[in-house]
Design a protein around this nucleic acid. Structure first.
Lengths: 236, 236
DNA sequence: GTAATATAGTAGTCTAGATATCTATACAGA
DNA sequence: TCTGTATAGATATCTAGACTACTATATTAC
């Protein structure tokens, strides 16, 4: 029996992962091109690409079309405020924390998002990815979708305003009401594990929520991953 | 500008996603083989596989090497409301709920249990361990503590009655109302994994609940472990 | 009848190559 | 100086085919 016969693309991913962790390639540094790397490992370019895909999934690498493969920077870049009520779960416990905005991407709604937000497919939506802290420790990672038709210039406002709830209230005169919340348990995804600073093979709480305003319009669809051991949702 | 020029593998994923949501393929049903699907969509097998990979990532599909592509079973929904009705929730989704009583042990309450049940240390309590099924598949494992002072002869009645809620209602004239529910995520314990028939290193939902009767007396403290992938708590 | 074996069908891996699309740069022309 | 264009190099997508490993089933041997 050949115990070491892991697929090549996994072996290559392990090799590159080690190189990055050992500092052979530093943050934001450009790796050799796919062509060079596939030559170096003696595999086909497609096999190498599969290894790169794994590492992208883990959040270790990032690829820019036409530019190259880069080591991803650990996400500690755009803090936009402190002491924000970033979700009902923390509010329910009267806890507050801080968060960092990791990503702000405008997209066109594909079918699932459109359905959740009750808008048409293709309508403009902004995706936020936020990392929430409690006592300086990463606690949750949330991906939130807001319809841009209801909130024009949301991306602009995000740069200057501290709290999403506050922004909703003050700029758009919009309440932030929970319509529906689904809770399940999952194993942490590799890319989330790094950001949440938990080991692989840890359990997380997966909370899916839909929020609406005072007129019953859906204003947000969000998926939050809580560190399962640290977090206990309390329902009363 | 070509706005519709999404990559083929994304279009195919959307197509299949819609088919699943529309019930063209039902839970646990086998999809056509990769060969057949790539023929149908008129693309290469690799392109199709990429679409399948997307849907596997979303948890919509599952592939078994040598067998085929299958629609993953969507998680059961478990509404959390005031009343506690385990079987009704399942039956609402077309599942037959049933229970197996694994253990019935009368004990004297130690401090934690006494505190949760709001009784004195040493008071008589009965511990139930129950395995809950949905259509013959183990779904949850629950350990429940009932104060025997409120429910004399509970152990006797358990042998003849199927539903705890029903027993409470009919024998003790006692409502079964949710006071407090805590939800977190854990890795399954090895001994639970065997009973729940899940692999080790799987995530489970850990639900801790305290229930009271119509007079505000605590009648139950319970700890339930749900199969995380199969169950979704729904709060509305 | 049962167990071993052959066979067909399935998903997984890997190679090979073509084309598309995006980025950076150099260069020519206004 | 600015702008458009050509070009080289990069990633992204797609096709084609070979081979591996696993599963289910039918067939054969006993």
């Amino acid at each position: 029996m050949n115990y070491e016969a892991l697929p090549l693309y996994i072996q290559i991913a392990q090799n590159l992962r080690a190189s990055i962790q050992q500092g052979v390639y530093r943050a934001e540094e450009k790796l050799p091109s796919e062509h060079q790397l596939s030559d170096r490992f003696g595999v086909n370019r497609h096999t190498l690409r599969r290894a790169i895909a794994l590492l992208k999934d883990e959040g270790l690498l990032r690829t820019d079309k036409g530019r190259g493969i880069f080591v991803a920077t650990p996400p500690l870049e755009y803090p936009i405020g402190k002491r924000v009520r970033y979700n009902q779960a923390l509010e329910a416990q009267g806890k507050q924390g801080s968060y960092q905005l990791l990503k702000t991407v405008p997209i066109a709604a594909e079918s699932e998002i459109a359905q959740k937000l009750e808008i048409a497919i293709g309508d403009p939506v902004v995706v936020l990815e936020m990392l929430g802290f409690a006592d300086e420790h990463p606690l949750l990672l949330t991906t939130r979708y807001f319809p841009l038709t209801l909130f024009p210039d949301l991306v602009q406002h995000l740069k200057s305003i501290k709290s999403i709830s506050q922004l909703m209230q003050e700029v758009y005169d919009c309440e932030h009401i929970r319509r529906c919340t689904d809770v399940s348990a999952r194993l942490v995804r590799p890319q989330d594990a790094r950001i949440l600073q938990v080991a692989l093979n840890q359990a997380i709480l997966l909370v899916e929520s839909i929020n609406e305003n005072q007129h019953g319009q859906v204003i947000e669809y969000g998926v939050t991953r809580f560190r399962g051991n640290d977090m206990k949702l309390v329902l009363r």
